[in-house]
C-alpha cells in the first residue's frame, strides 16, 4: 500500500503512544470532578428533581455529536483536497463514536422525556435532528463497510460527509420549521443562557470530560485503523508474492 510506505502514519503512531496516557489521565480526572459535581454539588431542579441530572450526560453528548460531525467534515476536506493519508482514517474512526454519542443523546433524552413529558419520544425539532444525524452516521458506517478498498471507500464517504455537512443546516432549518408548524408548544430550554451557575459549572466540566473522552476514543480508533490497514497491506503483499508489486520495463525497437 503506497501511502503507508511514507513515514507519516508511523510518526502518528509514535505520537499517539506519547499523548494517549496523558489524555486518558486528564479524561479520568475530568470525569471524576464532573460526575462528583453533577451528582452531589448541583442542586435538584425545583420542578424536575433528580431527573435534571440526566442533562449532564445528555447535553454534552449532543454537543459532542455535532463536533464529531464537524471533525469528520474537516477530515473529508483533508481527504479530497489535501489528500492527507490520515484524513480518511480520522473520518472513518470518528463515525462510530459519533453514532455512539447520538445514540447516548437519544437514549438519555428518552429517559428524561418519560417523567417530564410522559412519553419516551416526542417529535421535537432537536430530537428529530439528532435522530437524522444518527441515521447519517449509520449510513456512513455502512458505506465504509460495504466498500472493499479503504481508499475508495474513504473518498466516497468523504463526498457523502461533505454533502451531509451542507445539508445538515438545511435539515435543521426545515425540521425547525416543520416543528413550529405542527406543535407550537415549546420545550423547556435547558441549555439556554438563563441556567444557574451551580448547574452550569458541572455541565461545562462534563462537556470538557466528554471532549477528552472523544479524543481518547478517536485516537485509539485511528491507531486501530492504521494497524488494520497495515495488516491488510501485509496480506495483499503476501498474496502477490508470486507476482510482486513492481513491474520492470524494457523497450527496444522491433525490427
Amino acid at each position: 500500500m503506497a501511502i503507508w510506505d511514507y513515514a507519516n502514519p508511523t510518526r502518528f503512531l509514535r505520537l499517539v503512544e506519547i499523548i494517549l496516557p496523558w489524555l486518558i489521565a486528564a479524561c479520568a480526572a475530568a470525569f471524576a470532578v464532573g460526575l462528583y459535581k453533577s451528582f452531589f454539588m448541583a442542586p435538584e431542579d425545583y420542578q424536575q428533581g433528580d431527573t435534571v441530572r440526566i442533562m449532564f450526560i445528555h447535553v454534552p453528548a449532543a454537543w459532542l455529536a455535532m463536533m464529531c460531525y464537524s471533525i469528520m467534515a474537516i477530515s473529508s476536506l483533508g481527504t479530497l483536497v489535501w489528500k492527507h493519508p490520515l484524513a480518511d482514517v480520522s473520518a472513518k474512526a470518528a463515525a462510530p463514536i459519533g453514532a455512539a454519542l447520538t445514540f447516548t443523546c437519544l437514549v438519555t433524552g428518552a429517559l428524561w422525556g418519560k417523567p417530564m413529558w410522559g412519553t419516551y419520544w416526542v417529535w421535537d425539532a432537536r430530537l428529530t435532528s439528532v435522530l437524522v444525524l444518527f441515521i447519517m452516521y449509520l449510513g456512513l458506517m455502512a458505506l465504509w463497510r460495504t466498500m472493499e478498498d479503504p481508499i475508495k471507500a474513504g473518498k466516497a464517504a468523504a463526498i457523502l460527509t461533505l454533502v451531509g455537512a451542507l445539508n445538515l443546516p438545511i435539515i435543521k432549518f426545515s425540521v425547525d420549521w416543520w416543528n413550529t408548524l405542527h406543535q407550537p408548544a415549546s420545550v423547556i430550554r435547558l441549555d439556554g443562557p438563563t441556567i444557574h451557575p451551580d448547574m452550569l459549572v458541572p455541565l461545562l466540566v462534563m462537556a470538557l470530560a466528554f471532549t477528552l473522552l472523544f479524543f481518547v476514543l478517536h485516537l485509539m480508533a485511528m491507531r486501530n485503523e492504521v494497524l488494520r490497514r497495515r495488516v491488510r497491506a501485509m496480506r495483499m503483499r503476501a498474496a502477490s508474492v508470486a507476482a510482486p508489486a513492481t513491474a520492470r520495463a524494457t523497450a527496444q525497437p522491433a525490427e
Binding site: 507476482a243 513492481t246 520492470r248 520495463a249 523497450a251
Partner: peptide, 23 residues
C-alpha cells in the same frame, strides 16, 4: 512501426527500472 514495452515482474520489489526510447 513498433516499439515494444515488455512489463515483467521484478524480482526486487520497488526497484525502478526504466528506459526511454524515441522512435
Amino acid at each position: 512501426t513498433i516499439v515494444r514495452l515488455h512489463l515483467e515482474t521484478a524480482p526486487e520489489p520497488m526497484a525502478p527500472l526504466s528506459q526511454e526510447r524515441d522512435a
